[in-house]
């Protein structure tokens, strides 16, 4: 009985230490990426190629989701706001929720599922088939050649995707609010403009999405690079990418929001 209990606590302790270990090596990995970034910037076409794979190919799912999110926000918002006789404020509600929260957060979550998993699986497979080893033996650093371009592609794509998400979401909200519900088009835009501040709302949203871009891409790359070189190892790493990215995004979102609202 006692030994079972000790074993249980020992197991928990072991897992915590293991997590911390991985967290530390993740940070070291981040440092390596930054160190080797210079080499990858010199050959920009590598990064551009990766922007295509992470950014452009994620575009469709982002835009469709954004449109629906915007429409749902408008419907739900109208339902509540009309009870207080202020259904013109629907534009404000849609725009603020998108620009401050939903744009960056939902984009990051979709990014983790769409681009993050692809990155993890690709790098994990490159490792499993010894491609990374081969590169190393050719005196080419896999971090400079494979990892860093994907990192910067993710970091650059995320704010662009988030901005597109917010914009298309607002358009989706407009489609529901103005033609469908019959809110005045002028009131929709002017109320929105009056209460959405560029620095307080839009810029903070962009800052959030840049941070999410760093977190999601880093997690995806690290899980791929750290995956055991087997089929099972790669599939587990892909799952971990989604789970860890989502947790990181939601946690970081809370921390950043609290700073931004207090400041």
């Amino acid at each position: 009985m006692f030994s079972a209990l000790a074993g249980m606590f020992g197991g928990i302790g072991h897992r915590i230490i293991d997590r911390l270990w991985r967290f530390g090596s993740g940070l070291r990995f981040f440092a390596y990426i930054l160190i080797y970034s210079g080499e990858s910037f010199r050959r920009l076409h590598l990064t551009i190629r990766e922007i295509y794979f992470t950014g452009v190919l994620s575009l469709i799912i982002m835009l469709v989701s954004a449109f629906f999110v915007g429409m749902v926000l408008a419907l739900q918002g109208y339902n509540t706001l009309q009870r207080y006789g202020s259904s013109e404020a629907i534009g404000v509600l849609v725009a603020l929720s998108l620009v401050r929260e939903l744009g960056p957060v939902v984009t990051a979550l979709l990014f983790a599922g769409r681009a993050g998993t692809a990155i993890t699986a690709e790098i994990g497979l490159m490792k499993a088939t010894e491609q990374l080893s081969a590169m190393e033996m050719m005196a080419v650093s896999p971090i400079a050649r494979v990892v860093a371009p994907r990192f910067w592609a993710g970091v650059l794509s995320m704010p662009l995707l988030a901005a597109l998400f917010s914009m298309v979401g607002v358009l989706g909200g407009y489609m529901v609010a103005v033609p469908l519900i019959g809110v005045d088009s002028g009131a929709f835009w002017s109320q929105m403009q009056a209460s959405v501040d560029f620095k307080e709302d839009i810029l903070n949203g962009i800052i959030k999405s840049v941070v999410f871009g760093v977190a999601c891409t880093l997690i995806a790359l690290f899980e791929g690079f750290d995956a055991p070189p087997t089929a099972e190892g790669v599939s587990r790493a892909t799952t971990r990418t989604v789970v860890n990215s989502s947790l990181a995004v939601l946690g970081l979102d809370f921390v950043m929001t609290s700073f931004m609202i207090v400041a």
Partner: peptide
């Protein structure tokens, strides 16, 4: 100075 042939070739896919 070295060239290495890996077990499964390890070509860049």
């Amino acid at each position: 100075k070295m060239g290495m042939l890996f077990q499964q070739g390890a070509l860049f896919t």
